[in-house]
Nucleic acid binder design. Structure first.
Lengths: 351, 351
DNA sequence: CCACAACACTGAAGCGCGTTAGTAGAGCGC
DNA sequence: GCGCTCTACTAACGCGCTTCAGTGTTGTGG
């Protein structure tokens, strides 16, 4: 059994289970009442006698009855479900999810998760959510174009998380990317850095703003001539590639602003392998403060986004829009700030 | 706008959108045919004329019609959806998800994701899946007890991933934990290690087997007296705690077998901070080979589980059970093997 | 010219529930 | 005894879809 066909063994035989899930009618007939009454009792509406109520509840429990959400949806015309699209290997999205669940539950909504993966693009992921009649869409790190987003938004309230869309007709929640990046640049400049490079995140969420903020901040410090953006992505691989690129050049920058933490990890990895000390020779700053950045010897200096608040506000936006049918699209901008850890330091002495 | 109330600005006004999603009836009346026919055409069943077919398809497209999966489920009595429970911050689960989606799609099934988080336990997560009438359950890293699992399994085919349940009446897919651990121990012993400690994963998936395999392997090498299991979890924090514990003792072991990669990261982190060199003074082995282990200077020696194959087999198990109604519960055991990288080396010379 | 099949299509029932309108009976005041 | 209000309950419709059992029309062979 090296690496060929997996072994399979029979381990007993499962019950010839009935596999029939009980319906409301089952509960009703068991209790000797009408289905309507069961429905009332189960939803806590008034109108049933105390005795009967208790009996119905007991029987429902005994039978293991669970309301069928599909039927509920159909009957009441709404699903009470929020659809959340995430990129399953963006640790920051994971942090967001953790904040989204409790807030949704608090407000009485279900959460439907749909992940993009290599091979499962946004359209598919969102399509799945729509098919299940989510009442609102929360898109984490969408890279869809404006037209596409408008289309979603026309059908169902849509909240864009982690990205801003100029003049769009949909809600968005994101951090003040500009501020975080500016802080990072200010800090590096203060340490004495001038040759500060930025690895960007292509079309991924927040990238545009971070790129622009980087340029602006550099200019404010009169460092126009040192502005340099290396095209990248929000992945470790992109960081590695950027590292290789830099290693192949004559002259390393003294500091790098990565597109996000993952990219920073990859970069540090390849720099270290290339014999370059971080932060001795090159300082590295990440973005997100995903929980990995605190750990391992990485100890990454990064720009913190408050996932809890972002997630919470995203849910609230969606729900408010749903329940108050507000007409104005809203942009929630949360604060972001630099967290200084161990991957940054004064620039090396230039040779 | 430091860290107080987030700024909110109005950014325009959304369309007073109709927000009415088109139904089959809409398509039917537009096309001047019956709903039945629309249903047939949209599902590619024969029985409609070529012209009419084309027209219906065109109109459905123009209207942006999407079948309502709730109604479909109700009507045809099955959801064609697999429910997957995952722990959102277990990177290994993420790898599994990536394999599950395509295989499910290939077999014509939807995937419903439900995450456990701190504050959202397994019951809740599985409950949500059941409410949506998933036809089968795929549980990644469940730590539910046997009784609970039996209960799930009685209602709907259930596949347990990453864990084995002795004599249970449900399918399971996992790696040969024993083999991986044995390889790791063999390797360490071969390098000359004797004081090999194991940090376990409490009740988390695979832990029991790994713990037992560790003990067995140690005994086979006549290292009974060095057997030591430190209670832990599959998290970085547990690794950090274990590291602190070890640092506080007189005598460090020469090698540690962590419960999984995350735990290994935490351990390495705290050892490094404590001035202990890895692998110079202590060798560390992880478990999972989650994609992080290749990266950063960690370069973790670990036991590889083939996420692709595990995910694929999990889906196949569920679907086969669903479609062939097989009666025997089956256990799929996949191979696992040690991947040697940079966190292991010969033991330090004992003082 | 009739029987019969093949084709293109339709009507109606029903999935499990929520909801609206309604009923039957008890209690009460006068 | 009448009208009234309450309480405790039920019948029936419809959500959007699939499916089963047809219906009507055309073509074919004898």
């Amino acid at each position: 059994m090296t690496n060929g066909v997996p072994s399979q063994r029979e381990v007993g035989s499962s019950s010839p289970a009935p596999r029939n899930r009980p319906t409301m009618d089952d509960v009703a007939s068991q209790a000797g009442v009408s289905r309507t009454l069961v429905s009332l009792v189960l939803r806590g509406k008034p109108g049933a006698g105390a005795e009967t109520s208790k009996r119905i509840l007991r029987i429902a429990d005994e039978l293991g009855y669970r309301p069928d959400s599909a039927a509920q949806l159909l009957a009441r015309g709404r699903s009470r479900a929020l659809g959340v699209m995430m990129n399953v290997d963006q640790p920051f999205h994971v942090d967001l999810i953790k904040a989204i669940y409790p807030e949704a539950e608090r407000l009485g909504y279900d959460v439907l998760l749909s992940a993009t993966t290599p091979g499962r693009d946004e359209r598919k992921a969102v399509g799945a959510l729509l098919d299940h009649r989510c009442e609102a869409l929360i898109l984490l790190g969408s890279s869809a174009d404006a037209a596409q987003l408008e289309r979603y938004s026309a059908g169902v309230p849509t909240v864009l998380v982690g990205r801003r869309l100029a003049g769009a007709m949909l809600d968005s929640v994101h951090t003040a990317e500009g501020k975080g990046v500016r802080q990072a640049v200010d800090y590096l400049v203060e340490l004495g850095h001038r040759r500060i490079v930025h690895i960007d995140g292509d079309r991924e969420s927040g990238s545009v703003d971070r790129r622009r903020a980087y340029r602006t901040a550099m200019r404010r410090h009169k460092l126009d001539e040192f502005i340099r953006v290396i095209p990248g992505h929000h992945t470790e691989d992109a960081g590695i590639d950027a590292g290789q690129l830099l290693l192949g050049e004559d002259d390393l920058p003294t500091a790098v602003l990565a597109g996000n933490d993952r990219c920073a990890f990859g970069l540090i990895h390849s720099l270290s392998r290339g014999g370059v000390d971080v932060p001795g020779q090159v300082s590295v700053v990440g973005y997100d403060d995903s929980h990995l950045s605190h750990l391992s010897q990485l100890d990454l200096t990064t720009v913190r986004q408050d996932a809890d608040r972002i997630g919470t506000y995203a849910v609230r936006s969606a729900v408010e829009r749903l329940e108050q049918g507000g007409l104005d699209s809203r942009e929630v901008v949360l604060d972001s700030k630099l967290v200084v850890r161990g991957t940054t330091g004064p620039p090396r002495a230039e040779h």
